[in-house]
Design a protein around this nucleic acid. Structure first.
Length: 621
RNA sequence: GCGCCCGUAGCUCAGUUGGAUAGAGCGACGGCCUCCGAAGCCGUAGGUCAGAGGUUCGACUCCUCUCGGGCGUACCA
């Protein structure tokens, strides 16, 4: 079969000697210019309420004899595991140690110092913990005023001076866009939006797999069996057939691979020859065909610089490697050995026939990105099976003492698995015919949504358009729901079940909130006009809202969109529960207005959360 | 062989970097639409956190080993 799949099949990540986490700190220790990104131990982004509480706590610890500098990093305010304990909790273990006291007694002393004020309602010691409650009115005011004003972290933060390159989607365009390509695409797309929300300058890059042996194999197949008429009739379908045929025939005729290698060498000669023209034709057709899935998924890129873009940049990159003195000959090939970095396999940069490889182009791309964008981080959203590739890429840059090495960061994700007849999970493989094209899946989901709409909301005016939105979102949401490192189990039944923690569930909450706003018949009040004390019963909703900023921040730090997904589910759940017993329409005016503001803010925050995931929030569904 | 990842309820997964009584959804069972959208809500059942050691005041979380499953392992990507 044809091997590899562009970055869509590019799946290695760093480990061993140069793990991704910590390399920024290591770079800083070495005096490199890449600033460390916020570390995991940095305090979470604080709301006004937290800042106030924090100040009160630091004043108290100072009174208790602790130096502010020493106490500050130990004052970590986390949501308690059990909401009954309070709004935020402080584990006093380390502070107590600093004070030389037992945690429980220190906690009581600390709690006693935090007397109530207009923000803090109570501080109570519970064993070694101190639990705090905010005044309900203050909680509501702080959260809702900020959301209504679209202030950070609920709205977009001002520019923070950071620059992040995100390499995502990056499919091998000589093959149809299938389910396996979707993960990198939607995860990368979400990460772009999340970083932008935080004020980072983002360069979203589609590093197309439009060069190298896979493309050469496609050319070989086309030259042998293809014809242009059929190609134009249905390009992707046709190329997929050629791809499959090559896979079958190469088993009996391994010389096909040699033929492909010759074609690649001819292509890479730079001459205007048959290969060049064919490459152009196949590339154009593939690229056109890829616009479909991208637009359906609402995915865009800032730069579409595929592997071929680096054709004329690889020689300079190789020179740079040679000049650094790390390039060696091995069996006629040019390689960089990385044993001292704990990587046994050498990084191949030039084959013995003189042609380049995936690594060569990635190296050239890293230099290009450094020079063009000056990124603090370069995220490669590529499957986990390519870990070694990125270990090596980073390793070569490290060995060359290139500063950009510190920025290189593989963001691996799990495989898409399909269920076999005997109930086991196995990798999707185009060759065994169990590949599912993205369009098929989206169509299936959209059709299901369309029938649900027919049943539940037959009068919906733009039903087809909404069905498309809800259906595609369901698939995207499902991919962003779990930690990205987990394999995705592709299961039709589960994929088309829209109950519970799903995209439609969150969208439904938005639609329901919109509906209430339409029905109540009065405009959303200004926060200044609202009596926030009337929202004491909405504490659960408000506390979840307050976590939004932390969720987005963590998602960016950990390159983990599922943290945002989880937050939207939690907020949708809380608002659904709240609405059961708290009516807006028909409530007395002051209560109605307060609840209306809450409803509006919930809708806005859910919409923002979905937007960060690349998912629309229709007003009706 | 070596390296890396994963293992939590029947199924699919959370568990905020070592803190309080391990939480959701699906599926199952039982309730709730003359009441702002039932794609919803409320409740019940369901756990040896793969196993064994270790570190710690405290371990699902960190370390070691074992057992399962997966991925990778120089002229593919």
């Amino acid at each position: 079969m044809l091997s590899g799949a562009g970055r869509g099949g590019r799946v290695a990540d760093f480990g061993g000697a140069c793990p991704n986490t910590g390399d920024v700190a290591a770079a800083r220790a070495r005096g490199l210019r890449y600033p460390a990104r916020p570390s995991a131990t940095d305090p979470r982004p604080l709301t006004d309420l937290h800042t106030h509480l924090r100040e009160r706590l630091l004043a108290a610890t100072t009174q208790l004899g602790l130096a502010r500098d020493a106490a500050e990093p130990l004052v970590r305010l986390d949501p308690p595991k059990n909401r009954e304990h309070g709004d935020v909790a402080l584990g006093a273990f380390q502070l107590a140690k600093l004070a030389g006291k037992a945690p429980p007694s220190f906690a009581s002393e600390l709690a006693a110092k935090i007397t109530p004020d207009d923000v803090i309602e109570s501080a109570t010691a519970a064993g070694p913990f101190v639990n705090f409650k905010f005044r309900r009115a203050a909680l509501a005011r702080a959260v809702l005023t900020a959301i209504a004003a679209d202030a950070a972290p609920y709205g977009r933060s001002p520019k923070n001076g950071q620059v992040v390159c995100i390499d995502y989607s990056s499919p091998n365009i000589a093959k149809p866009f299938h389910i396996g390509h979707m993960r990198s695409t939607v995860i990368g797309n979400a990460l772009c939006r999340i970083h932008r929300h935080l004020g980072t300058t983002v360069h979203g890059i589609n590093h197309l797999g439009d060069w190298g042996m896979p493309f050469a194999k496609m050319m070989t197949a086309y030259m042998r069996w293809g014809n242009e008429q059929e190609l134009h009739r249905s390009p992707m379908r046709y190329m997929f057939d050629l791809y499959k045929r090559y896979g079958v025939e190469v088993k009996n005729n391994p010389a096909l691979d040699d033929e492909a290698a010759l074609h690649f060498k001819a292509l890479e000669s730079g001459k205007d020859n048959q290969e060049r023209r064919m490459w152009q034709l196949l590339r154009d057709e593939s690229l056109k065909a890829f616009q479909g899935p991208y637009s359906r998924l609402g995915v865009t890129f800032d730069h579409v610089t595929g592997e071929s873009f680096f054709e004329d940049k690889m020689e300079a990159a190789m020179q740079r490697v040679a000049t650094a003195g790390v390039l060696e000959n091995s069996d006629g090939a040019q390689v960089v050995w990385l044993k001292e970095l704990g990587i046994k396999e050498p990084c191949l940069l030039r084959k013995s026939d003189g042609t380049t490889l995936y690594h060569t182009r990635d190296l050239a791309a890293a230099f290009w990105r450094e020079q063009q964008y000056h990124p603090n981080r370069i995220l490669y959203v590529v499957g986990a099976e390519q870990k070694l590739h990125f270990d090596q890429l980073k390793g070569v840059l490290t060995k060359m003492k290139e500063e950009v090495a510190a920025a290189v960061e593989h963001v691996p994700f799990g495989l898409v698995l399909s269920k076999t007849e005997d109930g086991k999970w196995e990798k999707f493989a185009s060759r065994s015919g169990n590949a599912v094209f993205l369009d098929e899946i989206l169509d299936e989901a959209v059709a299901k949504v369309r029938s649900i709409i027919r049943e539940k909301n037959p009068d919906l005016p733009n039903a087809d358009e909404v069905a498309e939105q809800i259906g595609t979102s369901a698939i995207v949401f499902n991919d962003l729901k779990n930690s990205r490192i987990k394999d995705v189990k592709f299961d039709w039944e589960q994929m088309l079940n829209f109950d519970g923690e799903t995209g439609p569930y969150v969208q439904f909450a938005c639609a329901r909130l919109s509906s209430i706003q339409r029905k109540v018949g009065v405009p959303v009040p200004k926060p200044e006009a609202v009596d926030f004390a009337l929202l004491a019963d909405a504490e659960r909703v408000l506390l979840v809202m307050m976590e939004f900023g932390t969720a987005v921040q963590r998602a960016a730090e950990q390159s983990e969109p599922s943290i945002v997904t989880g937050h939207t589910i939690a907020l949708a759940g809380e608002i659904h529960s709240y609405l059961r017993d708290h009516y807006v329409v028909g409530a007395e005016p002051a209560v109605r207005d307060a609840r209306l503001l809450l409803v509006d803010c919930a809708r806005r925050l859910l919409t923002t959360g979905l937007w960060l995931l690349g998912i629309p929030a229709p007003e009706r569904m």
